[in-house]
């Protein structure tokens, strides 16, 4: 029983962390129809920033500063690597995203020298707590609540503000919304800013749990979060969150069983099954192809 609770707890918190990354994927895909392969690496870079900033700044300055710098990074990536390719075929943009991911990973290897970096202790989050006889970190408990709060805030933003309305319009029809006077570049930048901010928050939660950061530690969480986004129906924020929680729980169950080698394989097998059976995911809108 205790074992089950500890697995469920870690699964829920892992799912919450994936959810924060998955929202970034799903929002960008909803607007640009682009799988932003660099998103997982932005998440990793956010973790590294905290590591380096915390060497000379107190942690409560360092975390907000990380969020600001990550947002800046996401904004710059969009302006430099994706904006010039706005009219290019979709494949070029995707390749550009792969290039950015490659660059970020190599840059991280260069700066860290390839050595794993230890994430600093965050007061409050890193402390231990005992629930129903299982001891865990506070971050495990905090994550789901924080995620739900952030998602509610985000849906409010999308449904009840002007920029949110613009985002929905651009996601529906890129060109028409441009004709209607929406400055799509601002909207797209805003999407990347929100996505990067959530990735930064996600990295704080994730790396408080799994403390060592290597240049590749963004790649797999990124891919799993993407699978979550597809699972929930790409373009849909509640879908991404539910998908992420499901994937997080499944992963932690498999990791706790004898089949732990297959935890990633399972995630991808799930992806292939979902894509084949219901390509639009759980909550995705049905799109009809026009000739």
């Amino acid at each position: 029983m205790q074992y089950a609770i500890s697995i469920l707890l870690s699964g829920v918190s892992l799912g919450g962390q994936y959810a924060l990354i998955a929202i970034g994927y799903t929002m960008v895909y909803g607007i640009l129809r682009l799988i932003n392969f660099a998103h997982g690496d932005v998440f990793m870079v956010a973790g590294l920033m905290t590591v380096y900033l915390s060497t000379f700044l107190p942690i409560y300055v360092c975390l907000p500063l990380t969020a600001v710098l990550t947002v800046l990074l996401g904004f710059v990536i969009e302006r430099v690597a994706y904006k010039p390719l706005r009219s290019a075929p979709r494949m070029s943009v995707m390749i550009s995203a792969i290039g950015v991911s490659y660059l970020l990973q190599n840059l991280a290897t260069y700066i860290t020298g390839g050595l794993p970096q230890m994430y600093p202790q965050v007061p409050g989050l890193s402390a231990s707590v005992t629930i129903a006889g299982t001891s865990t970190k506070w971050v495990t408990i905090v994550t789901p609540f924080l995620v739900v709060a952030l998602v509610i805030a985000l849906t409010q933003l999308i449904n009840h503000t002007k920029i949110g309305m613009a985002m929905r319009a651009v996601a529906k029809d890129f060109e028409t919304s441009q004709l209607m006077g929406i400055k799509i570049n601002n909207v797209i930048s805003m999407t990347f800013i929100i996505g990067s901010f959530l990735a930064a928050v996600g990295s704080m939660l994730y790396f408080t749990n799994y403390q060592s950061i290597v240049p590749l530690s963004g790649a797999l969480p990124g891919l799993r979060a993407f699978v979550a986004a597809v699972f929930g129906g790409i373009g849909s924020i509640p879908g991404a969150v539910i998908g992420a929680f499901l994937i997080g729980i499944c992963e932690s169950i498999i990791k706790g069983s004898d089949w732990s080698v297959f935890s990633d394989a399972f995630t991808f097998a799930l992806l292939i099954v979902v894509l084949v059976v219901k390509p639009t995911g759980l909550f995705g809108e049905k799109v009809t192809d026009k000739v």
Binding site: L223, I272, L275
Partner: peptide
Amino acid sequence: PVLRLKSDYLAIATLGFGEIIRAIFQWD
């Protein structure tokens, strides 16, 4: 199954297939 998918979905499914193969070959 996979070839019925459209562009980026195909990309991500084949990427996933690569990971699955790698896990299977490392299986004890």
